[in-house]
């Protein structure tokens, strides 16, 4: 008997092209960027690239800008994930009911999700615009605001306004995932709970919420991974400003790498961000996965 049969050999042959592509487009950049992070590469002096070990990592941990960016990213991610998940559950609860216009509303739900990120960023930038923005116009007309404000110029709320734009785009997918999970809850559980004497809130707590855990886990992991690495909205709406009010980790990596041209420290920051994202996702899966 041969070690590998015909089937195994053909399988290996068929898998090889995909494996080769994956090695080139995924494995190589991961390994190469790690190599870059261990060298002091500055693009203004391209021929000088000394090996510095983990000095780049130590340097960024000593950098106050890095910790500010970590704090901003944490706030931004927490707001995005919490609000997106909360709204997604509410929207899913609504669209899981049968009422006139439910199908139309379900279809409309997909519009923000289908909007390209750049379009989304520009749209919200215009909505927040201090001279012709919709938000100013609306609030002044209903009397909630006396005069037009420079919304994105206020460091106290900039991050929240960008988060709002992100939530608007991300919530529909999260809601869809929740609806799918809700549809899988057996109707008999609700009927049993009604006979047992559970009111609508108790039915939500004892039947819906526990059954939503798989969907919740998916949404939490996905939203955390997306939000922590958000970049496009920051590029389009504020470019880190006003001051450093929207200087998140992704934006800092961009500035460090492509504006300051310090590829070594930029790669080290990217690695820290990637490992953090992975660790957070793992923690969510482990924490919620145990309870499913």
């Amino acid at each position: 008997m041969t070690r590998f049969g015909y089937d195994e050999r053909s399988a290996a042959l068929l898998v090889f092209p995909v494996l080769a592509v994956l090695l080139v487009v995924a494995a190589f950049p991961i390994i190469y960027s790690f190599w870059v992070s261990l060298h002091d590469i500055v693009l203004t002096r391209p021929l000088r690239r000394p090996f510095v070990g983990f000095d780049n990592y130590l340097r960024i941990f000593d950098d106050a800008r890095f910790w500010t960016a970590v704090a901003r990213t944490t706030v931004y991610t927490l707001v995005c994930v919490a609000v997106t998940t909360f709204l997604a559950v509410l929207v899913a609860l609504l669209l899981n009911e049968v009422f006139p216009g439910q199908r139309l509303l379900s279809a409309l739900l997909l519009v923000p999700w289908a909007t390209p990120s750049v379009v989304n960023g520009l749209m919200w930038k215009w909505i927040y615009d201090p001279t012709y923005g919709l938000l100013n116009g609306l609030l002044v007309q209903v009397g909630l605001l006396e005069r037009y404000r420079v919304w994105l110029g206020d460091p106290d709320i900039t991050l929240l306004l960008i988060a709002n734009a992100a939530i608007w785009k991300q919530m529909p997918l999260a809601a869809l995932l929740m609806i799918v999970t809700m549809k899988a809850i057996p109707e008999d559980l609700y009927r049993a709970a009604r006979v047992d004497g559970a009111n609508i809130w108790q039915r939500f707590v004892h039947v819906t919420l526990p059954a939503l855990r798989p969907g919740l886990m998916l949404v939490l992991v996905y939203e955390t991974m997306i939000s922590i690495r958000h970049f496009d909205l920051f590029l389009i709406m504020t470019q880190g400003g006003p001051g450093d009010a929207s200087f998140t980790l992704s934006w800092l990596i961009y500035v460090e790498t492509f504006r300051s041209l310090r590829f070594g420290t930029g790669a080290a920051m990217s690695y820290v961000l990637a490992i953090t994202t992975f660790a957070l996702s793992w923690a969510v899966i482990r924490f919620l996965g145990k309870r499913i």
């Binding site: 049993a192 006979v195 526990p210 309870r291």
Partner: peptide, 18 residues
């Protein structure tokens, strides 16, 4: 239902999985 003093057993058992 809960004020009728009835108990119900379902074909699917309808036990709360959690």
């Amino acid at each position: 239902p809960h004020k009728r003093e009835v108990a119900m057993v379902f074909q699917s058992y309808a036990l709360y999985p959690n």
